[in-house]
């Protein structure tokens, strides 16, 4: 285990060290101390590496992650794990707005709450939130799974494509073209596996599934007057 202390090591040096370690395929473990809400901590890692951040971070932590496992022992600012490709990002606390935005793969595991726009435009990432999520979550989400053990805010899944949304608690309101869908055995299976991977204490049967009604996919001539 190597330690990088951000009270003495500049952010750029921390990120270069982690990026080179990831590239070397070493699969080493790193600990980041004193992040003090810094922006862009542990970004652009491209290879197997285990990183533990001991404290809270600011904007864009763990962005563009590929293969690495990043654990934040605190809360994260806006845009955590943005555009993640693969690997795993675990947040022990809360995540601010647009967590996991545009993510293409991997698992984002948020133990606390996520605020607005969680999973906006997600493209294949799996996101598990153990608490609640804010408004406009999964806006224009295209692919992947968003699992919420708590409640969802307003306009969930607005203008949704083919991402699957599973919510255990209440949904304040559904966005345009997002509807509740039946839970089939294959969905129970997907959810079971995701809950197990995220260490979540919940049963798949307790969740409801939401998805796209697919009414916005094509222009409907009968709606021409509405434009």
């Amino acid at each position: 285990m190597s330690t990088l202390d951000m009270s003495v090591t500049p952010l750029r040096e921390v990120n270069v060290t982690l990026q080179e370690a990831a590239k070397s395929q070493s699969n080493n473990a790193y600990e980041i101390t004193n992040p003090r809400g810094s922006h862009a901590v542990a970004v652009g890692l491209d290879g197997p590496l285990s990183v533990t951040v001991k404290g809270s971070t600011g904007y864009y932590c763990a962005g563009m992650n590929k293969l690495a496992t990043i654990r934040v022992e605190g809360s994260t600012g806006p845009g955590v794990a943005e555009n993640m490709m693969s690997g795993e990002v675990v947040i022990e606390g809360d995540a601010s707005q647009y967590a996991g935005a545009t993510g293409r793969g991997g698992l984002l595991n948020i133990k606390g709450n996520a605020s607005s726009r969680c999973g906006i435009s997600m493209k294949g990432i799996d996101i598990v939130v153990h608490g609640n999520i804010g408004h406009m979550s999964a806006f224009m989400a295209q692919k992947g799974n968003l699992v919420v053990l708590g409640d969802a805010g307003d306009a969930l899944g607005d203008s949704l494509y083919e991402a699957r949304l599973f919510v255990r608690g209440t949904v304040k309101s559904l966005g345009a073209d997002c509807i509740e869908k039946e839970m089939r055995p294959e969905h129970i299976e997907i959810l079971q596996e995701l809950l197990a991977r995220a260490g979540a204490d919940a049963k798949p049967e307790e969740f409801k599934r939401y998805g796209s009604a697919r009414r916005l996919y094509n222009f409907n001539i009968d709606h021409a007057d509405e434009y």
Binding site: G37, S56, G77, P78, Q97
Partner: peptide, 27 residues
């Protein structure tokens, strides 16, 4: 505002309530 795209974070202890645009102001 209802869209809430401008960041905000709060902290409370027995001694104070603090507000900031970002957590790092609390460090």
């Amino acid at each position: 505002d209802p869209i809430a795209c401008k960041p905000a974070v709060m902290a409370e202890t027995d001694d104070y309530v603090a507000f900031a645009s970002e957590y790092r102001a609390f460090a």
